[in-house]
Design a protein around this nucleic acid. Structure first.
Lengths: 105, 105
DNA sequence: TGCAAGAATAAGTATGTAGCTATATTGAGC
DNA sequence: GCTCAATATAGCTACATACTTATTCTTGCA
Protein backbone atom coordinates (compact mmCIF):
# COMPACT_ATOMS: atom_id res chain seq x y z
CA UNK A 1 0.00 0.00 0.00
CA UNK A 2 1.55 3.24 -1.15
CA UNK A 3 0.93 6.49 0.62
CA UNK A 4 0.02 9.43 -1.58
CA UNK A 5 1.95 12.71 -1.34
CA UNK A 6 -0.45 14.23 1.15
CA UNK A 7 -0.19 11.25 3.46
CA UNK A 8 3.58 11.23 3.12
CA UNK A 9 3.51 14.87 4.11
CA UNK A 10 1.61 14.03 7.25
CA UNK A 11 4.08 11.31 8.14
CA UNK A 12 6.98 13.68 7.47
CA UNK A 13 5.35 16.29 9.64
CA UNK A 14 5.19 13.95 12.57
CA UNK A 15 8.80 12.91 12.17
CA UNK A 16 9.73 16.57 12.03
CA UNK A 17 8.47 17.02 15.56
CA UNK A 18 11.26 14.67 16.66
CA UNK A 19 13.93 16.30 14.57
CA UNK A 20 15.19 18.98 16.93
CA UNK A 21 17.36 18.39 19.97
CA UNK A 22 15.41 20.86 22.10
CA UNK A 23 12.14 19.03 21.54
CA UNK A 24 13.80 15.69 22.22
CA UNK A 25 15.18 17.16 25.43
CA UNK A 26 11.67 18.17 26.43
CA UNK A 27 10.35 14.71 25.59
CA UNK A 28 13.16 13.20 27.62
CA UNK A 29 12.23 15.28 30.65
CA UNK A 30 8.60 14.29 30.28
CA UNK A 31 9.56 10.64 30.28
CA UNK A 32 9.37 10.64 34.07
CA UNK A 33 5.92 12.20 34.04
CA UNK A 34 3.93 15.39 33.93
CA UNK A 35 5.82 18.70 34.24
CA UNK A 36 4.90 22.36 34.16
CA UNK A 37 6.42 24.71 31.63
CA UNK A 38 8.58 26.38 34.24
CA UNK A 39 9.85 23.04 35.53
CA UNK A 40 10.90 22.14 32.01
CA UNK A 41 12.56 25.52 31.57
CA UNK A 42 14.54 24.95 34.75
CA UNK A 43 15.80 21.61 33.49
CA UNK A 44 16.90 22.89 30.08
CA UNK A 45 19.21 25.67 28.94
CA UNK A 46 16.88 27.60 26.68
CA UNK A 47 14.38 30.41 27.16
CA UNK A 48 10.85 30.12 28.47
CA UNK A 49 9.57 31.47 25.19
CA UNK A 50 11.32 28.75 23.27
CA UNK A 51 10.06 26.00 25.55
CA UNK A 52 6.50 27.29 25.15
CA UNK A 53 6.91 27.38 21.42
CA UNK A 54 8.28 23.86 21.16
CA UNK A 55 5.62 22.54 23.53
CA UNK A 56 3.00 24.08 21.31
CA UNK A 57 4.46 22.32 18.32
CA UNK A 58 4.51 19.00 20.19
CA UNK A 59 0.96 19.60 21.31
CA UNK A 60 -0.26 20.31 17.81
CA UNK A 61 1.48 17.18 16.60
CA UNK A 62 -0.53 15.23 19.16
CA UNK A 63 2.52 14.08 21.08
CA UNK A 64 1.73 15.75 24.40
CA UNK A 65 -1.40 16.63 26.34
CA UNK A 66 -1.81 19.66 28.57
CA UNK A 67 -3.91 20.65 31.53
CA UNK A 68 -4.05 23.88 33.44
CA UNK A 69 -3.60 23.95 37.18
CA UNK A 70 -4.19 27.48 38.40
CA UNK A 71 -1.48 29.56 36.73
CA UNK A 72 0.56 26.61 35.60
CA UNK A 73 0.19 24.41 32.56
CA UNK A 74 1.19 20.78 32.96
CA UNK A 75 2.31 18.80 29.97
CA UNK A 76 2.76 15.09 29.53
CA UNK A 77 3.47 12.64 26.75
CA UNK A 78 0.21 11.51 25.22
CA UNK A 79 1.28 8.33 23.54
CA UNK A 80 3.86 5.68 24.47
CA UNK A 81 4.76 5.40 20.79
CA UNK A 82 6.88 8.47 21.45
CA UNK A 83 9.23 6.40 23.57
CA UNK A 84 9.11 3.46 21.19
CA UNK A 85 10.22 5.72 18.36
CA UNK A 86 13.06 7.21 20.38
CA UNK A 87 14.05 3.74 21.50
CA UNK A 88 14.26 2.42 17.95
CA UNK A 89 16.44 5.32 16.90
CA UNK A 90 18.74 4.99 19.89
CA UNK A 91 19.08 1.27 19.24
CA UNK A 92 20.05 1.98 15.66
CA UNK A 93 22.62 4.57 16.66
CA UNK A 94 24.06 2.13 19.19
CA UNK A 95 24.22 -0.61 16.61
CA UNK A 96 26.01 1.69 14.17
CA UNK A 97 28.44 2.99 16.74
CA UNK A 98 29.31 -0.28 18.49
CA UNK A 99 31.83 0.94 21.04
CA UNK A 100 30.62 4.18 22.62
CA UNK A 101 28.36 4.23 25.63
CA UNK A 102 24.94 3.00 24.71
CA UNK A 103 22.29 5.60 24.16
CA UNK A 104 19.06 4.84 25.89
CA UNK A 105 16.16 7.21 25.78
CA UNK B 1 19.53 7.53 31.52
CA UNK B 2 19.58 11.02 30.07
CA UNK B 3 21.16 11.78 26.74
CA UNK B 4 23.47 14.76 26.65
CA UNK B 5 22.97 17.54 24.08
CA UNK B 6 25.36 16.00 21.59
CA UNK B 7 23.61 12.65 21.73
CA UNK B 8 20.24 14.34 21.41
CA UNK B 9 21.57 16.09 18.36
CA UNK B 10 22.49 12.76 16.82
CA UNK B 11 19.03 11.38 17.52
CA UNK B 12 17.44 14.51 16.08
CA UNK B 13 19.62 14.22 13.01
CA UNK B 14 18.41 10.71 12.33
CA UNK B 15 14.77 11.72 12.74
CA UNK B 16 15.38 14.60 10.37
CA UNK B 17 16.18 12.13 7.61
CA UNK B 18 12.57 10.98 7.87
CA UNK B 19 11.09 14.44 7.99
CA UNK B 20 10.66 15.20 4.29
CA UNK B 21 8.00 13.70 2.06
CA UNK B 22 10.41 13.18 -0.83
CA UNK B 23 12.74 11.07 1.27
CA UNK B 24 9.82 9.07 2.63
CA UNK B 25 8.67 8.51 -0.94
CA UNK B 26 12.11 7.16 -1.79
CA UNK B 27 12.07 4.90 1.25
CA UNK B 28 8.63 3.72 0.26
CA UNK B 29 9.83 2.77 -3.20
CA UNK B 30 12.79 0.93 -1.72
CA UNK B 31 10.47 -1.10 0.47
CA UNK B 32 10.08 -3.61 -2.35
CA UNK B 33 13.84 -3.91 -2.77
CA UNK B 34 16.91 -2.54 -4.41
CA UNK B 35 16.47 0.15 -7.07
CA UNK B 36 18.76 2.25 -9.23
CA UNK B 37 18.68 6.03 -9.07
CA UNK B 38 16.99 6.29 -12.44
CA UNK B 39 14.33 3.77 -11.45
CA UNK B 40 13.55 5.86 -8.41
CA UNK B 41 13.45 9.03 -10.50
CA UNK B 42 10.95 7.39 -12.84
CA UNK B 43 8.67 6.50 -9.96
CA UNK B 44 8.70 9.97 -8.39
CA UNK B 45 7.90 13.43 -9.65
CA UNK B 46 11.09 15.26 -8.82
CA UNK B 47 14.40 15.80 -10.61
CA UNK B 48 17.29 13.37 -10.84
CA UNK B 49 19.47 15.88 -9.06
CA UNK B 50 17.09 16.01 -6.15
CA UNK B 51 16.80 12.24 -5.90
CA UNK B 52 20.59 11.94 -5.86
CA UNK B 53 20.80 14.59 -3.20
CA UNK B 54 18.22 12.97 -0.96
CA UNK B 55 19.75 9.53 -1.47
CA UNK B 56 23.07 10.93 -0.37
CA UNK B 57 21.47 12.28 2.76
CA UNK B 58 19.84 8.91 3.48
CA UNK B 59 23.14 7.20 2.80
CA UNK B 60 25.05 9.43 5.17
CA UNK B 61 22.40 8.83 7.82
CA UNK B 62 23.09 5.12 7.46
CA UNK B 63 19.58 4.31 6.29
CA UNK B 64 20.45 2.97 2.86
CA UNK B 65 23.36 1.07 1.32
CA UNK B 66 24.60 1.47 -2.23
CA UNK B 67 26.48 -0.63 -4.74
CA UNK B 68 27.62 0.21 -8.21
CA UNK B 69 26.68 -1.97 -11.13
CA UNK B 70 28.44 -0.69 -14.22
CA UNK B 71 27.08 2.82 -14.68
CA UNK B 72 24.20 2.41 -12.30
CA UNK B 73 24.09 2.79 -8.56
CA UNK B 74 21.69 0.53 -6.72
CA UNK B 75 20.32 1.60 -3.38
CA UNK B 76 18.50 -0.35 -0.75
CA UNK B 77 17.31 0.09 2.80
CA UNK B 78 20.04 -0.95 5.17
CA UNK B 79 18.06 -1.55 8.31
CA UNK B 80 14.53 -2.86 8.90
CA UNK B 81 14.16 -0.34 11.70
CA UNK B 82 13.35 2.09 8.92
CA UNK B 83 10.09 0.29 8.27
CA UNK B 84 9.39 -0.17 11.96
CA UNK B 85 9.70 3.57 12.47
CA UNK B 86 7.43 4.37 9.57
CA UNK B 87 4.98 1.77 10.80
CA UNK B 88 4.82 3.26 14.29
CA UNK B 89 4.15 6.71 12.88
CA UNK B 90 1.48 5.47 10.50
CA UNK B 91 -0.20 3.57 13.33
CA UNK B 92 -0.25 6.71 15.41
CA UNK B 93 -1.72 8.80 12.61
CA UNK B 94 -4.36 6.15 12.04
CA UNK B 95 -5.19 6.05 15.73
CA UNK B 96 -5.52 9.84 15.83
CA UNK B 97 -7.64 10.04 12.70
CA UNK B 98 -10.01 7.15 13.37
CA UNK B 99 -12.20 7.27 10.27
CA UNK B 100 -10.05 7.91 7.19
CA UNK B 101 -8.43 5.12 5.20
CA UNK B 102 -5.69 3.52 7.21
CA UNK B 103 -2.17 4.54 6.37
CA UNK B 104 0.21 1.66 6.03
CA UNK B 105 3.77 2.16 5.02
C1' DT C 1 -8.37 46.85 41.67
C1' DG C 2 -3.60 46.20 41.32
C1' DC C 3 0.21 43.27 41.24
C1' DA C 4 3.06 39.35 40.46
C1' DA C 5 3.96 34.78 38.50
C1' DG C 6 3.42 31.61 34.80
C1' DA C 7 2.69 30.94 30.02
C1' DA C 8 1.94 32.38 25.35
C1' DT C 9 2.69 35.41 21.49
C1' DA C 10 5.10 38.97 18.46
C1' DA C 11 8.80 40.60 15.84
C1' DG C 12 13.20 40.04 14.17
C1' DT C 13 17.60 37.58 12.85
C1' DA C 14 20.07 33.74 11.37
C1' DT C 15 20.56 29.41 9.57
C1' DG C 16 19.45 25.17 7.19
C1' DT C 17 17.85 22.94 3.37
C1' DA C 18 14.51 21.50 -0.52
C1' DG C 19 14.30 22.08 -5.06
C1' DC C 20 15.72 23.88 -9.55
C1' DT C 21 19.04 24.32 -13.66
C1' DA C 22 23.45 23.70 -15.29
C1' DT C 23 27.70 21.35 -15.13
C1' DA C 24 30.95 17.83 -13.84
C1' DT C 25 32.14 13.06 -13.07
C1' DT C 26 32.25 8.22 -13.97
C1' DG C 27 32.12 4.05 -16.68
C1' DA C 28 30.93 1.20 -21.03
C1' DG C 29 31.33 0.52 -25.63
C1' DC C 30 32.95 1.93 -30.10
C1' DG D 1 40.44 8.86 -27.15
C1' DC D 2 35.40 9.92 -27.98
C1' DT D 3 30.61 9.63 -26.93
C1' DC D 4 26.70 8.53 -24.53
C1' DA D 5 24.17 7.18 -20.36
C1' DA D 6 23.81 7.25 -15.35
C1' DT D 7 25.00 9.82 -11.13
C1' DA D 8 26.78 13.32 -8.57
C1' DT D 9 27.81 18.06 -7.55
C1' DA D 10 27.64 23.32 -7.81
C1' DG D 11 25.35 27.46 -7.52
C1' DC D 12 21.24 29.58 -6.63
C1' DT D 13 16.52 30.97 -4.77
C1' DA D 14 12.78 30.38 -1.77
C1' DC D 15 11.04 29.13 2.35
C1' DA D 16 10.68 27.19 6.92
C1' DT D 17 11.84 27.50 11.54
C1' DA D 18 14.91 27.79 15.92
C1' DC D 19 16.06 31.10 18.94
C1' DT D 20 16.23 35.61 21.13
C1' DT D 21 14.17 39.72 23.52
C1' DA D 22 10.16 42.26 24.44
C1' DT D 23 5.43 42.21 25.16
C1' DT D 24 0.85 40.46 26.09
C1' DC D 25 -2.41 37.44 28.26
C1' DT D 26 -4.17 34.87 32.31
C1' DT D 27 -4.82 33.66 36.96
C1' DG D 28 -4.43 33.92 41.95
C1' DC D 29 -4.00 36.84 45.68
C1' DA D 30 -3.17 41.09 48.61
Amino acid sequence: MKLDPEQLERVAHLFRAFSEATRLAIIQELKSGELSVSEIVQRLTTSQANVSKQLKLLYEAGLVTRRKQSTQVLYQISDPMVFELCGLVCDKLNRDAQKPARLKF
